[in-house]
Design a protein around this nucleic acid. Structure first.
Length: 663
RNA sequence: GGGCCCAUAGCUCAAUUGGUCAGAGCCGCCGGCUCAUAACCGGUUCGUUGCUGGUUCGAGUCCAGCUGGGCCUACCA
């Protein structure tokens, strides 16, 4: 198959710092891209950043920064993180680039020309945190924190006639039964569409940080219209009359394979809105939307709040890019939720990479071939049944692994590939080349050694999409050049390894991590020997408080653990106002480094007025159960010192960012 | 309220269109080997495949109900 292959990651919203979740999506896309390149297909792999929207504008304003300066600062860390992970994307687009903006305008014009865009007025709730319009019901069900970022909007707005696409979308789904993967997610999409679609508001006038609408610059494009367009704008599409766009013509043509890797949270936008936009504009639709699951971290939900917001950098520093990539792809079934566990990573590393593949290479190259064959690859003699069996295993594995990669099941591909590692290790034991050497059975030894080396060569190709550097290292030891792009290099013909070549024994490809190192490594990630967070910050889902008969504590003291239950953080007081009908209460909006500020009520008005408390950096108890005071929810408590003479809030030096933990 | 998905050995997962005694890896235990990264190889314990019925010559695999978990969705109190 030599049709072009196009794979994209979501474009990551620059409100966040890169974390393991971003790395996961991107590595998955990179593995697919590298695999298809190996197969000799023309490949394009795109990632990028989503940089517009009200949330960005708001955040930048809060920081006293120009939005453009803000996104210029927040965007590079994503590319750097992915490069560190050896993700070889061909392009990384930013939605603030001119090349993107002009294509959003072009898409808009096409949709408008098709008669699917009309001017109306939108009234309803808009969630800034999610950058999405929500219904009244959804609004009511929100938690208090999120609700803070929801606003009532009533403004003129352009609409996209999404309602007219219900039947066309359903027909398309029917005709493309694997358009959305996994299947369960597709069902959700279908049932959502079956209920009938409402027209979609696709412009806003209440803020400016976005792409102006052609002919009506009061409006900026709805962020999702803006963002989704990236998949074609990066290719130079949609084309205007008479334009030349070779990338677009190659990778977005009807028969190219076009896969969007997305998180399950943004599936609806990709599986419903995006195809509808493209249908309206008369453009080809993507081949497949792959929604993967979420990762928890050591069993806990990843969240800034719980301090387990894992950036990929330290992982790469500790284990190297290939091992992190391997683990991410191996551990979780693509499409399902999974857990990222440092402990497990080390277990898989030792068990599969060091003991399995690494040791196989080492026992052969650095020992048997080196000692008995002077490091030269022997010519195979007549084969026996065991030799044929290993060869057949290799052929089956290559076939199945390829099928799994074509089907976007990287974890299954790895599972299959490592069957060959196991088979080769068993083969070495069965044929006992060290014994053959002692008995002077040189010809048989040659056949056995060749068979294992050839299997290793096959492995060097099959692991390449997952572990490009380790693949190169493995090939170097086999005396082979790194894989070069071009023809289909996936192993199929047995015997490609040239006899007479010189092997290059080297240090262990995957040095084992011993128990002591493991402990040190885990500790460096703040974990105990069992791989659990040393100081669990995330309360276990409240079961019943078990009575623990521990040593009694001295009267009047609490255990250290008890102290840790109190979560104190630095809060930046954004606004303050007196609560009507109350003489003591102030209603504060406090930035705690979360997505939205919290509302906190504090009885400090006798000592502070609204103006004097605003802007202060205070200490807030953040895990106090929310409480309603005079009808208003209070989501925390500001610490203050007081005596008869007066009251002062506890303040923190200017430099500490909101959200910093106090302990 | 409507709908979807999942529930298989201690853990993570497999089991072609229902069809050989339900498998693999990890973990544990026993043994072997010694070329190797205290590695590798062999053997081995635990499953009435969530529960209850049904269809069938035959069901983990289909149907109904139940229990438990996850998710999508909705302008019925």
């Amino acid at each position: 198959m030599t049709t072009p292959f196009y794979v994209t990651t979501p474009i990551y919203y620059v409100n966040d710092r890169p974390h393991v979740g971003h790395a996961y999506s991107t590595v998955a896309a990179d593995v697919l891209a590298r695999y298809q390149r190996l197969r000799g297909r023309p490949v394009r792999f795109l990632t990028g950043n989503d940089e517009h929207g009200q949330k960005i504008e708001k955040k930048a304003t809060e920081l006293g920064e120009d939005p453009q300066a803000f996104v210029d600062r927040m965007s590079p860390p994503f590319r750097e993180a992915f490069e560190q992970l050896d993700c070889a994307f061909d392009d990384s687009i930013r939605t603030t680039e001119p090349r993107h903006k002009e294509r959003v305008a072009a898409l808009w014009e096409r949709m408008k020309a098709a008669g699917d865009v009309f001017l109306g007025a939108y009234e309803g709730w808009y969630s800034v945190a999610d950058e999405a319009f929500i219904t009244d019901k959804e609004y009511e069900e929100l938690d208090d924190v999120t609700r803070k970022s929801v606003q009532r909007v009533k403004e003129p707005s352009y609409f996209f006639r999404l309602s007219a696409f219900t039947d066309r979308l359903l027909a398309f789904y029917e005709a493309n039964p694997s358009f959305v993967q996994p299947e369960g997610r597709f069902n959700e999409v279908k049932s959502f569409v079956k209920q009938g679609l409402r027209d979609l508001s696709i412009s806003r006038t209440s803020f400016t940080w976005g792409i102006p609408i052609p002919g009506d610059p009061e409006h900026v494009a709805y962020v999702w219209l803006d963002a989704l367009t990236n998949y074609i704008s990066a290719l130079g599409g949609p084309k205007r009359e008479g334009e030349d766009a070779p990338l677009y013509d190659t990778f977005w043509r009807e028969d190219a394979t076009k896969i969007h890797i997305v998180g399950k949270d943004i599936l609806r936008f990709h599986a419903i809105y995006w195809p509808a936009f493209l249908m309206s504009a008369g453009l080809p639709l993507p081949t497949q939307i792959w929604a993967h699951g979420w990762l928890t971290i050591n069993g806990q939900k990843m969240s800034k709040r719980y301090g387990n917001f894992i950036p990929p950098g330290p992982l790469v520093d500790a284990f190297g890019p290939d091992v992190v990539r391997y683990y991410l792809m191996r551990e979780v079934a693509f499409g399902q939720d999974g857990d990222f566990s440092h402990k497990n990573l080390i277990a898989r590393y030792n068990g599969e990479l060091a003991n399995g593949l690494g040791n196989l290479l080492n026992r052969m190259i650095a020992s048997i071939v080196k000692k008995n064959l002077r490091g030269v690859i022997p010519a195979p003699g007549p084969t026996e049944e065991v030799d044929e069996a290993l060869r057949q295993t290799a052929e089956r594995v290559a076939r199945e692994a390829a099928a799994h990669l074509d089907g976007v099941a990287p974890y299954r591909a790895l599972d299959t590939i490592f069957e060959l590692v196991g088979a080769a290790n068993r083969y070495v034991d069965q044929t006992a080349p060290w014994a053959l050497a002692k008995q002077g059975e040189t010809e048989r030894l040659g056949t056995v050694a060749y068979t294992v080396l050839e299997a290793l060569r096959w492995l060097s190709v099959m692991i390449a999409p997952f572990m490009p550097s380790k693949s190169a290292g493995l090939r170097r030891q086999l005396g082979l050049a790194p894989l070069a792009p071009g023809e289909d290099a996936w192993p199929s013909g047995w015997g490609g390894l040239q006899a007479g070549g010189t092997t290059a024994p080297d240090k262990a490809l995957f040095p084992r991590i011993d128990a002591k190192e493991e402990k040190t490594l885990l500790a460096s990630f703040g974990l105990d020997a069992e791989g659990r967070p040393a100081a669990p910050e995330q309360p276990a889902p409240v079961k019943k408080a078990k009575k623990k008969s521990k040593e009694p504590l001295p009267e009047g003291t609490i255990a250290f653990d008890d102290f840790l239950k109190v979560e104190l953080r630095v809060g930046h007081v954004l606004t303050a106002e007196a609560v009507p009908k109350s003489d003591k209460l102030l209603r504060l909006e406090v930035d705690l480094g979360e997505d939205a500020p919290r509302q906190i009520l504090s009885g400090i008005r006798p000592h502070y007025d609204a103006a004097s408390i605003t802007g202060k950096r205070v200490v807030v108890v953040t895990n106090l159960a929310p409480r309603k005071i005079m009808g208003l929810a209070s989501q925390g408590m500001v610490l203050a010192a007081s005596d008869d003479a007066g009251l002062r809030v506890v303040e923190v030096a200017e430099g500490m960012p909101p959200g910093a933990r106090v302990s």
